[in-house]
Amino acid sequence: MRVRKAKKEAEISKNDPRVKFLANKIKKENYSPGSLIEILHTAQNAFGYLPLNVLQYITKALKLPPARVFSTVTFYHFFSLKSKGEHTCLVCTGTACYVKGAQAIVNELEKQFGLHSGQVTPDNKLGVAVARCIGACGIAPAVVLDDEVLAKVEPQELTQKIKSKLAAS
């Protein structure tokens, strides 16, 4: 046996409404280890990403090995360990959108906000990501701005829209 350093317990605020929501979900799933993905989904949607203390909380509640939870989180692209930003801008770069000028949108975002795909501004206000195809080829080039699907996007219009969103928040 080796001497272990005292571990700091996961700091998680029980009064946080997001934590309460998550705790409810875990209870509803009957603390079943098989519902891990469901619960991770809930946590990802509530927090916008999966902070380590939330993962520790879930691990304890479901009595799962930590490595198993981390393995699941890193396997699926839906889960993120880093914050994706308060506002997210997802640019579709599938074939149809690419032909219709998705690259110009990506370039404009990079020029205006200095963000590559997967990056977030230092103040955590805006995150940019690209997807291969969001299945909306008829309205190419498509962009998803905070769960709102925008059709036939012009690069300048998009950056204007983002700027007004950032200013409003």
């Binding site: 380590l52 993962l55 520790q56 930590p66 490595a67 939870v69 981390f70 393995s71 890193t74 396997f75």
Partner: peptide
């Protein structure tokens, strides 16, 4: 953890 060429053996988190 991870997938493809980024696969790594991990302990805990």
């Amino acid at each position: 953890m991870n997938r493809g060429t980024n696969v790594r053996i991990i302990s805990d988190f």
